[in-house]
Computed example of a mutant assay.
Amino acid sequence: MKIWTSYGAEHSLNLVIIGHFKDAIEAEEFESLVSSLTNFLVNDSDFDVDSDRFSSGMLDYLGKKNLFCLSPQQLGQLLYDMRLEREENKIVISSDDDLNALTSLLIHSGAKVEMFSAHDHPHEEHGR
């Protein structure tokens, strides 16, 4: 008889990212950008999550959007499970994964960014 022993731990970040924009129009444009980019990755591109280079189609798309702030690995993060909500001039993103791609996009789009773990700050108001 073999006995297998293992240890586990919760690796969930319970990450909250809040982007504060100057006005609601900028927040809406950011929400649209993330939606458009995610839809392109899922439906219209030959994007390979494991690649360390962009395909020519992906480079064309990113060039049209003027997005040169993300690596191929970061783009793959847009396919992770996350929740994005817009509330006037504020974007609230929550996920159990590290989403530094969205932090980069928020900064690139002109937002003031807050990040915290809802495990450590459950009392923080974060759009819910």
Rank of each mutant, 00 (worst) to 15 (best):
G76Y: 02
M82S: 10
K65M: 15
K2Y: 13
K2C: 04
P122Q: 07
Q77V: 04
T38I: 10
L75H: 04
E10V: 10
L37N: 08
D81M: 10
V113N: 02
L102P: 00
H121G: 00
N43G: 00
D46T: 07
N100E: 12
D23S: 07
H123A: 08
F68M: 10
H126E: 07
N39L: 11
F21A: 04
Q77L: 02
L41E: 09
S51H: 03
W4N: 10
L99V: 08
S45L: 09
K65H: 13
G110N: 06
F30D: 02
A9G: 03
L41F: 00
S32I: 09
A9W: 09
D44K: 14
K112I: 12
V49Y: 06
S55Q: 06
V92I: 12
M115S: 03
E124R: 15
A9M: 13
F54W: 07
S36D: 15
L41Y: 02
M58I: 12
E88L: 04
Q74W: 00
L99E: 00
N89G: 04
D81A: 13
E10K: 08
I3G: 06
M58T: 12
A111N: 05
L33Y: 05
L79C: 06
F21Y: 15
F47Q: 13
A24W: 07
K90H: 02
I3E: 14
M82A: 08
S36N: 14
L78I: 03
Q74C: 01
M58K: 04
T103W: 09
F116N: 05
G76Q: 04
D44N: 14
A9C: 02
S94M: 07
D52A: 11
F54N: 07
L84F: 04
L13N: 09
D48C: 12
R53S: 13
E124D: 02
Y7I: 13
E125P: 08
F40L: 08
K2N: 13
S32F: 06
Q73S: 15
A101E: 04
F54E: 12
E114T: 05
H11V: 13
A24F: 11
E124M: 15
G63E: 09
N14V: 03
E114I: 03
A27T: 01
F30G: 04
I17F: 03
F40W: 13
L59D: 13
E31S: 13
E26T: 05
H11F: 05
F54Y: 13
D44S: 04
L59Y: 01
L33S: 05
L105K: 06
E26M: 14
L99Y: 06
D23E: 10
L15Q: 14
D98V: 03
A24P: 01
Y80K: 09
T103S: 04
H121L: 12
L75S: 07
D50F: 03
L62N: 09
P72G: 09
S45D: 11
Y7M: 08
M1R: 11
L102V: 01
F54A: 14
E114Y: 07
L59F: 02
E28K: 14
T38F: 02
L67H: 03
S95K: 08
E87V: 05
I91Q: 02
S104P: 00
G63A: 09
D97S: 13
L15C: 09
L33Q: 11
E28G: 01
L67C: 05
G57T: 07
D60M: 11
I93T: 01
I25R: 11
S36V: 09
